[in-house]
């Protein structure tokens, strides 16, 4: 029982973690992309349909990553090249993604999908309690942890990561140093899109292998909240993602065993929890002030 609950918490947390880590990189470069939900749902529909048509779940994953990055490129073109308002453009990306995914997915509604297989290391995965948890999960679970470690190392341990943070904190001086602010922001935004696409594919290939319209159900937005929760620190995103995974799975189990609370109230718990967490974090001004990228959401037009 405990093992299966912990396993499902991991599958609920992994897409949040992947999407939030991607958005964290974009925001560290100073770009606020509110289109995570849109890129994620496009990843979900692409991953589902490509794997079904090609017969390979991995091909679906790759296609979802490409589509997520392509959507982010569109966002980048508008906000970085045409200097449109980032908040409004992100909303447009979400609305557009929800619409297009509904169109593409219409013919796939109700079809059984492919499932990404689990890694199964013999002997080790049969260990009691921790066996399946540590050695027998889906490959993207391991990837999500590697991704977090990689991003943490990149941002705080490499020169390129320092440049990216410089671009997010003070684009004018980064520009004066000869760093291509816009170029770096494009790359960061596209990395965020690729991650959101991957997170979407996780939903439609691992979490619930089927296509349902609007199946992301606000997870893209929760991922955005997680970045704030983590105060733009990669490792803290893991804590946030698993907290939300826990709330999501906890309320599902409570519904299953028939707690005397209406199921709708339980379903709204993750959303309410998001609000509570945001309030608690924002009360601590020192923490947020210290870590928020100083130029988050502000456009930069290089003069020449």
């Amino acid at each position: 029982m405990l093992e299966s609950v912990l396993l499902t918490i991991a599958t609920a947390a992994t897409p949040l973690l992947i999407a939030a880590i991607g958005e964290l990189v974009a925001e560290r470069s100073g770009v606020l992309n509110l289109g995570v939900e849109g890129m994620m749902i496009m990843g979900a529909v692409t991953g589902f349909s490509v794997s079904l048509l090609s017969g390979s779940a991995w091909l679906g994953v790759v296609a979802a990553i490409v589509v997520g990055a392509a959507f982010a490129l569109l966002f980048g073109f508008l906000t970085l090249t045409l200097v449109t308002n980032q908040v409004a453009t992100g909303l447009a990306l979400t609305l557009f993604g929800l619409g297009v995914s509904g169109m593409i997915g219409e013919s796939f509604v109700g079809q059984p999908g492919m499932r990404l297989g689990v890694v199964d290391i013999p002997v080790l995965s049969d260990l009691p309690v921790v066996g399946r948890l540590v050695f027998g999960q889906d490959p993207l679970f391991y990837l999500s942890l590697l991704l977090t470690a990689g991003v943490a190392y990149f941002l705080f341990g490499t020169r390129a990561g320092l440049m990216l943070r410089a671009v997010g904190d003070n684009p004018a001086s980064a520009h004066a140093q000869g760093i291509s602010v816009i170029g770096i922001r494009y790359l960061a935004v596209m990395f965020g899109g690729a991650c959101a696409g991957l997170a979407g594919a996780y939903l439609s290939l691992v979490y619930t292998p089927q296509w349902v319209e609007n199946m992301t159900a606000g997870r893209g937005w929760i991922a955005l909240a997680l970045v704030v929760f983590a105060s733009w620190r990669p490792w803290r995103v893991i804590a946030g993602a698993y907290l939300f995974g826990g709330v999501t799975i906890g309320q599902l189990h409570a519904q299953a065993i028939g707690v005397a609370i209406p199921s709708q109230m339980l379903s709204s718990l993750p959303y309410v929890a998001t609000i509570v967490v945001l309030v608690v974090i924002s009360q601590n001004r020192r923490l947020t002030m210290m870590n928020t990228p100083a130029s988050l959401g502000r456009p930069f037009v290089p003069d020449r």
Partner: peptide, 15 residues
């Protein structure tokens, strides 16, 4: 659902 896609596209072009 094409209507939703149209609406999203419209906002892109407006911006």
């Amino acid at each position: 659902k094409t209507a939703r896609a149209f609406q999203g596209m419209l906002l892109f072009f407006v911006l």
